[in-house]
Design a protein around this nucleic acid. Structure first.
Lengths: 152, 152
DNA sequence: CTTGTTGCAAATATTTTGCACCCAT
DNA sequence: ATGGGTGCAAAATATTTGCAACAAG
């Protein structure tokens, strides 16, 4: 669960402070999905003097090393998360940005069947649902907006 | 099936030459999915003097008008296709770039059930399978590569 | 005629890269 | 000691925007 300096060495990466801070951030952050900018801000706020270019380089290296996964929930903005080895897809709230993960064996199976039927061999896929929380603050906001436009 | 000047006017868009050429290209091109750059190249090659900025503007307007759909099969590259009103998902070949479309009611249903279970209301989703053609030139190439690495 | 549209060039946003200095191993 | 790693600034990529000239309704 915790990536050690040795883990990095084992993957051919020197255990530098920026790298340890970055992987630690992903392991401990409440927000599991972060952009390069997110990581930059948080480490800066934590008092670490780090360059944005380094963040980009390290995130790319970590993805190639299998430590992180990269997604694109919105165009032109890559988000990363810890790779815990269990494939899953995502649901994103368009109001608050909350990200939930899910896995459905039936959907996975159907995808492969469909691909096979079209003479494709699937090696990867992206499935992301976009919507709104139906509970909490987002639900409140939606209700308020619906009422407003309904009366306008 | 064919968008007329009147169709554009009806949506509040003047029927200019660039716009007519662009929509016609999407209606007739063998490649149904094109980037702004693709459109630019093809219209230039067709002898039309058009600016890239205009392509971007028109593609955006057409998407907002519901004439085109935008996707992001790969990061940092928007591709557009004609909107025929029937939702579908995609399979993309990582070798030749071939794009196949599919629709599966079961997958759609499961998505909504899952979202509901997590207290989300889904308003959109992206599902794209990435793989390789198992027939034709791509299959040949894969076989050759597999053999090569297997013997190396 | 009047307002929307175009082409160009400059601006943006995100990510990548060249380079001199620095630090894990 | 030495080769990889870092920070900075400049470059690269895809896309957007300001503006003056222009054309559709």
């Amino acid at each position: 669960m915790t990536t050690t300096p040795q883990d990095l060495n084992d993957r051919g990466l020197k255990a530098t402070l920026p790298r340890l801070q970055i992987i630690r951030l992903f392991e401990t952050s409440r927000d599991s999905h972060m952009t390069a900018e997110d990581v930059y801000r948080r480490l800066k706020d934590g008092g670490l003097d780090i360059g944005l270019a380094t963040i980009y380089r390290v995130l790319t290296q970590f993805e190639q090393a299998g430590l992180l996964l990269r997604h694109h929930f919105e165009p032109d903005k890559a988000v990363y998360e810890i790779n815990r080895g269990h494939h899953h897809d995502h649901i994103v709230c368009l109001h608050c940005g909350k990200v939930e993960e899910f896995f459905d064996a039936g959907i996975e199976k159907r995808q492969n069947e469909i691909a096979q039927g079209k003479n494709f061999e699937v090696v990867d896929h992206t499935l992301c649902l976009y919507g709104y929380c139906t509970t909490g603050a987002c639900a409140e906001r939606r209700r308020a907006e619906a009422e407003e436009s309904g009366e306008g």
